[in-house]
Design a protein around this nucleic acid. Structure first.
Lengths: 217, 217, 217, 217
DNA sequence: GATGAATGAGAGTTCATTCAT
DNA sequence: AATGAATGAACTCTCATTCAT
């Protein structure tokens, strides 16, 4: 899938209702590039307009404020991560599968997130940079995580604990270690040191091994 | 040690030669608070001045530019993390110890970083937020890490691998997993979800266990 | 010709391609007035904006910096004085004429400069005030004078010397005395004591007489 | 006479009453250098203080304001040029002499001014740069010139006219041409093109010749 | 829908001046 | 007398936003 298709997919959220004109897509692309390079606050709308090849005023036809432009980029990503509809897909894909063992679960989860971060690394970078400064981003993240994903995550872990596959530490700690480890690997590979010559497959396999061994019951 | 003492210690770097006036300390405190809350670019010098209880001009008497103010906050921290002199202390403390086993090494490393992040969490937050936007911050970090710490880290890991205590994965991967895991735990506890009721000791112990088991040879 | 037309003519340099909006002309007029009264360094952009009846930001939409505004005023004048194309016109008008005698040459030169200073006295004042502080102004002046005007000037003087009409002093000295005398008269009348009741024609005639007699061979 | 002596002489005005401390002299020197290079408005007191090797506050111990500092530099020069006491000396030296002919008068005047500009070129430069912006400088100049010098100048010229040595133009025009010519030569040599290799004596002699011939009756 | 000139609030920074030491 | 830290007003310049075209 091309970068452009991925962007469209991200923005359109599988629905064909909202229509993005060419100019609007150019704006979003330019904004993503600029926000990711300089951060939201240090990016000027005039620079984004120039990069997008549109007039300064055009941005404000589509987005009431600069912050709206940020939200329009980051919100679909969060929706995809956490939104009610999509989260269910995620939950279905990850948590409603019958796993033969813990490793299969971790592998499934890890590669699912791997695809996500690989495809949306720039927007993920923006989200990470900005999330601590904008409560509009933080709150839904926490709320929806707790509401939709956390419970299923907990249930799944408990099952593996009951089966003796996972160590009997507090579930929260185990969830945290799983997220930390997978996120750490993905961020290292795609955001922190993207220019290093990574052997993605091997890093992923060893990360999964590490997690399974580290949490063995 | 009080926060103020810690700040002084951070800024002074154990030397008593540089003298910080009361106003200057107030400015630095206000800047740390503001940068950490809003990010560097979104913080205005007028707000910092107001918070510090000084005139805006006073800031520029001590720091030529707003960016200098940022660097004056973040550079000593980096020096403490990575500077040639200090790094040696770190290397001595961590890598030139004779460990009975791998766990002891991990524990030593983890608690050393634990103290550091716990004491300097706000400045660490600023550093993490800004490092990707300012090459002045990125470059010394990479250079000094590679020069001073990386080699010793590698040697230590190889020793444990030779002793059969650590799995025979590429050393880089192992280092990455150790750093990811410890950093993940510390950032979770002190920066991402600082308001959660953490049982620090238990989290640290389980993180150490997790690392040792996950990397067992 | 009205002052406004003269300003337009000066700025447009005989080409109609560059378009100056009303606001931009207002800004230039206000800047000329202010710079001329207070000098460049002591003029504030806020005062210029107020005088021009525009917002301060508008100035910087048209001119990247305050100095650019100065240069945009003074450069066309220098081009008119010295620029390669225009200087040729000047050279043609002054130096490529066959003069019956030295007096005719001096008269031609003096009245040519008279018209120039009379029409552009304010901008000439700014140029004189600022030229010694800004190398961008000084250098082209010296270069182009030497390149385009000086040689022809020299040749013309030598001819009159050969014809026995002009005293056998070093040509440089003679050129200097001519420029000094004409410039002195024009500056006295238009810039130093503009409020005195000058009989322009008589002053010019006597200046010409003085020069011709003073330099007689 | 050394530069320092000349400065002292200029400041002290032959009286020993006002006492200049070493620091104060340093300040004045630094101010002269800075004002002359950048102009009054573009010179900062902090730069002057640094150049003088004194603290910023020290300047304001001696001079209430920055402008006072300018006046303290320029006023003695003007006094020397035009002041009631000194002007009389000048008048005596120049106008109360019995001249054998017009040339002797011009020569006396020209070399008197030559010495003056040669010795005080930097301060003369400052005066010329600033005179049109500060009415405090302009007014006494005009007043005192008219009151003290102009009358004697007029009388002297009329005498030479009566003797048939000087052309019967309006006296004002003749005075203007004399001042223009001498000033033009001195400014050319000492301020406009000081780096050119001038043969001062020859330029002066030819200037005098030029004036005498140009104004011959 | 798109433009881009215009805005004006506010940004970072400078600077003449004050004053406790 | 001399200092230099501190001031705050004013400076140049930027920027998100508006609006007539």
């Amino acid at each position: 899938m091309s970068q452009n298709d991925l962007l469209r997919e991200l923005l359109l959220l599988d629905s064909n209702e909202i229509k993005y004109s060419d100019k609007q897509l150019k704006i979003v692309e330019a904004a993503i590039e600029t926000f990711s390079e300089k951060g939201f606050a240090a990016s000027s709308t005039s620079e984004i307009a120039k990069k997008a090849g549109v007039a300064e005023g055009t941005i404000f036809r589509h987005y009431k404020t600069k912050k709206d432009l940020l939200l329009s980029i980051v919100t679909p990503l969060m929706a995809k991560l956490l939104g009610p509809v999509v989260a269910k897909d995620f939950v279905k894909e990850i948590f409603e599968v019958q796993y033969e063992n813990f490793e299969q679960f971790i592998r499934n989860l890890a590669f699912n997130r791997y695809e996500f971060v690989k495809n949306h690394r720039t927007v993920v970078k923006i989200l990470l940079q900005e999330i601590s400064f904008h409560d509009e981003l933080k709150e839904p993240y926490i709320l929806l995580f707790q509401k939709h994903i956390y419970k299923d995550f907990q249930k799944t872990i408990r099952q593996f604990q009951d089966q003796g596959e996972v160590v009997m530490w507090p579930v929260n700690t185990i969830i945290r270690l799983i997220i930390n480890t997978i996120a750490g690997t993905l961020l290292s590979m795609f955001l922190v040191l993207p220019d290093q010559n990574w052997d993605y497959d091997q890093e992923m396999e060893q990360t999964i091994d590490f997690l399974v061994k580290g949490l063995k019951g």
